[in-house]
Nucleic acid binder design. Structure first.
Length: 483
DNA sequence: CGCGAACGCAGTATTGCGTTCGCGGTGCAATACT
């Protein structure tokens, strides 16, 4: 078995050895176990389902949260020479969809959103097909988005009960014990095998800096990107601020663009591509930016606010330093940041009046979409309430949503506490995810003592080494291609 | 909730002040229109 795996690894992917955790995960999958795998960003998660795909007899279904992520992975597989790969999503025309649906079993790797999986004709088709493996990519989304944003994530359990259920693999970079439980519940896992790598990223150095006023934040960020270079991401809390900062920094001569959900899909893809191609050095973005951005040499992640949870923070800073070289995660906060964070994360929640309004309109047989066009409810409200009121009584729904809202507020306080107290940031993050930190790197974080000058030197040195390495690697791949 | 921009007013300057208004994250799919 082991020999066989290495053979496939080399022949299909061109690697001589596995990275930490990969082999164990793949062996569990081939052993027909349900698996929850937690691998830090950049540790080769996709290989964990791609390789078994070549060994297992039938297809692999990958549930993916973002269209851009699907497109990326499809392209990646195509580059490896795989033709039997497809993303079944709304980029397809109705005709293309019908055609594809009729010949879906021809494909080896099929990417879908949870929303698409819930569609009746997709359900029926997948019921009739042999499936070897189901993968939940970025599985923390089940917990993070399912309850109050994209309820189709919570419908996966019901969906799974209607197909001949193969083993399931859940992949993520960040999950607490609670999130792991959520994942296994909603993916109907009985006793999943856990493969958990250390979440600590020793080459990421943390800093939290208090700023006396909102107005001074920009000047401080400017100073920051002048002294410790990019490429990097600046996270802001609003779309407008992302645009304003990007404009101001662009005027100062930085190669930068903004990125947020208010932009066209095309523009967003363009910015991401420019960043990956080193045509710009900075992206100033809301939390819309990041998932699926496979850029290895991100040197800085700057925050202009307090993130809405430790999990979000870990995801965002985790995008730095995938190449292993020293990187900086620096966060600027003012004491009043939390007010806006609380407002933004809880504002969308349907309250009791929304819930009763929705319930009454359903009982009267009215279409809830009317309430949207009257401006009484948002689309998200309707989606969330449709989900909960179909499963819970009205009073239970009110209570559940109130609790969820309260949890959101608590998550902000947890984040704030990590920044404000005097303890090591790294240690607190690692412990938040239920792990133990064995050792701290030099220049660990702003609370342990951080010398940014030293970081700049060492990061330059490491980048130089890496460029040499990748040159050798490129040559070896070239020869492989000729053979 | 809390901030900043825009507005309105006074009334003889190109500013000052109080008030109102608008804004504030994350995505899918499908539809309508060019």
């Amino acid at each position: 078995m082991t020999l066989n795996l290495h053979k496939v690894l080399f022949e299909k992917f061109g690697y001589a050895s596995f990275r930490a955790g990969q082999q164990e995960i793949i062996e569990s999958i081939l052993n027909k176990e349900d698996v929850v795998a937690i691998l830090p960003t950049g540790m080769g998660k996709s290989l964990c389902y791609q390789l078994p795909g070549y060994i297992l007899p039938s297809c692999v279904i990958i549930i993916s949260p973002l269209l851009s992520l699907m497109q990326d992975q499809v392209e990646q597989l195509k580059k490896l020479g795989e033709k039997r790969v497809v993303a079944f999503n709304s980029f397809l025309t109705p005709n293309e969809k019908q055609t594809l649906l009729q010949q879906l079993e021809r494909y080896k790797f099929i990417f879908l959103s949870p929303e698409m999986l819930m569609q009746e004709q997709v359900k029926i088709k997948l019921q009739s097909m042999p499936i070897s493996l189901i993968v939940a990519d970025e599985a923390h989304c089940i917990s993070q988005w399912g309850y109050d944003f994209r309820p189709d994530y919570l419908r996966l359990g019901e969906w799974l009960s209607h197909i001949s259920r193969p083993p399931i693999l859940a992949l993520t970079a960040t999950a607490t014990k609670h999130v792991i439980e959520d994942i296994s519940t909603h993916l109907t896992m009985q006793q999943p095998t856990l493969h958990i790598q250390s979440l600590d990223r020793p080459n990421i150095h943390y800093a939290a800096v208090e700023i006396d006023s909102q107005e001074n934040k920009f000047e401080r960020i400017l100073k920051q990107i002048e002294s410790f270079s990019g490429p990097g991401i600046i996270y802001t809390q609003s779309r407008r601020k992302a645009d304003v900062y990007a404009q101001k920094l662009s005027d100062k001569g930085f190669r930068i663009a903004s990125y947020h959900a208010g932009m066209d899909q095309i523009d967003r893809m363009f910015v991401q591509q420019q960043f990956l191609n080193n045509e710009i050095d900075w992206v100033c973005a809301t939390n819309a930016f990041g998932m699926g951005v496979h850029k290895d040499d991100i040197r800085q992640v700057i925050h202009d606010h307090i993130p809405s949870s430790v999990a979000n923070y870990a995801q965002e800073v985790g995008r730095a330093g995938r190449d292993g070289s020293d990187s900086l995660a620096i966060l600027f906060y003012t004491k009043d940041d939390e007010d806006l964070s609380i407002f933004i994360t809880t504002n969308d929640f349907p309250d009791e009046s929304h819930i009763r309004l929705f319930d009454e309109s359903i009982k009267k047989g009215l279409n809830p979409n009317q309430l949207i066009s009257q401006g009484l409810l948002t689309e998200t409200h309707v989606r969330i309430l449709t989900f909960w009121l179909a499963r819970k009584k009205i009073n239970e729904t009110i209570e559940i949503l109130q609790q969820l809202k309260q949890q959101k507020v608590e998550q902000i306080f947890q984040m704030k506490d990590i920044l404000w107290n005097s303890l090591c940031i790294r240690q607190q993050i690692v412990e938040f995810f239920g792990q133990k930190l064995n050792s701290k790197p030099l220049n660990c974080c702003s609370k342990c003592g951080l010398n940014i000058e030293e970081l700049i030197d060492s990061s330059k040195e490491h980048v130089r080494e890496l460029k040499l390495q990748s040159w050798e690697k490129r040559i070896s791949l070239l020869f492989k291609g000729i053979e």
